[in-house]
Amino acid sequence: MASELDLSRDRLDAPFARRVEELSGENPYACYQCGKCSAGCPFADYMDALPNQVLRLVQLGDASALELSAPWVCASCLACGVRCPKGVDIATTMEALRILALRRGISPAPVTPDRPCPQIALVGAYRKLTP
């Protein structure tokens, strides 16, 4: 029996991964799942999937990544990006997932501002949480 191992990206359900790649400008397949991003993420404890797991879903072309709360918990602190041994800037992937979710009408949980709240925070939040 002939056996052949096809390792190409085309085997995967790649349209979703390609879309995320386009939006983020980062190649998700550069990630080799070492977990360093998640180890250093100050917000990982509050996420329903660790940053490297979010990236794994993207690699697998799994659009259920859009249903996660993790991208909404990510504060774009960029700690992951400066530390990734493969130079993957995961924060841009998180941003791509937020934007795709918003464009597809999958909204984050509604936000009620806690008072007091300075305008610098309100502007930041509406730029991140609205399409």
Binding site: P42, F43, Y46, V73, A75, S76, C77, A79, V111, T112, P113, D114, C117, A121, L122, G124, A125, K128
Partner: peptide
């Protein structure tokens, strides 16, 4: 050099408070 939570302060004071 670690993040304070930034704009998450709008609605996720639980996370920001921990940070």
């Amino acid at each position: 050099t670690e993040c304070c939570g930034a704009y998450l302060t709008v609605g996720r004071t639980d996370i920001v408070g921990d940070r």
